[in-house]
Amino acid sequence: MILTSTLPLVARLHVVAAFLGPWGLPPNASEHGLALDHHLLLNLWIALGLLVLIHVILGVGLLGGRRAEPADLWRVEYLPLAALAILFAFLTVKAERLWAAARYTGADPAALQVEVTGEQFAWYFRYPGPDATFGPTRAQLVAPGEGNPLGVDPADAHGADDEVTSELVLPAGREVDLRLKAQDVIHGFSVPAMRLKQNAVPGQTIHIHFTPTTPGTYAILCTQLCGLGHYRMNATLRVLPPDEFASWLASKRRAAP
């Protein structure tokens, strides 16, 4: 049983390893992702270890000759359970600390503000402009055909200078405060390379923050079933060195009327 199940697995491991490292994760490009990856890999190795261990015990028990049945409840049941409890407690505490660091507190006040809106089936990103304030949006004004997919009120002073893009461009090394919104149905904002995932829920604004570290282009996916175009609801995250980001922002502003 063990053999048949692990043999193809090993073979496949090599296929994957050829382009992606031992467990096949896409390379991490965010600050908090390092610890996350480390913890994930630790978990995976522990799970694999336990998997093999338990199957070995099962196999040895089945292959060995008949003996009297085990009777020692403490040794067979309670001690392993205690060991597992300690292991799980350790993993939980470790994971909770990472989770707390990522989610319990808001972003740094100096973080770059970007609003992310999901709608069937595209992501839009809004930068607040020089006044650092997002203008109000109205559902009545939404007109994707006329270049106003979010319904930003052009008459509003805060809204007039807002930049809306379909590509998320961020500077490397600066914390970003994303505010997630959804216009119609629930969408899942996910950037695998940033180890980031959060649903965007209509009627709610959800903040997440992170710091991209490595310049490059990364996939943004939708990970919550949102309708027939769910599979193609993707976008690109472009992380630029800070100076290039500044000039990108400037060019955007110049292009705007």
Partner: peptide
């Protein structure tokens, strides 16, 4: 449950 109006 409430919501944010047009004036935030």
């Amino acid at each position: 449950t409430g919501h944010f109006d047009a004036y935030n």
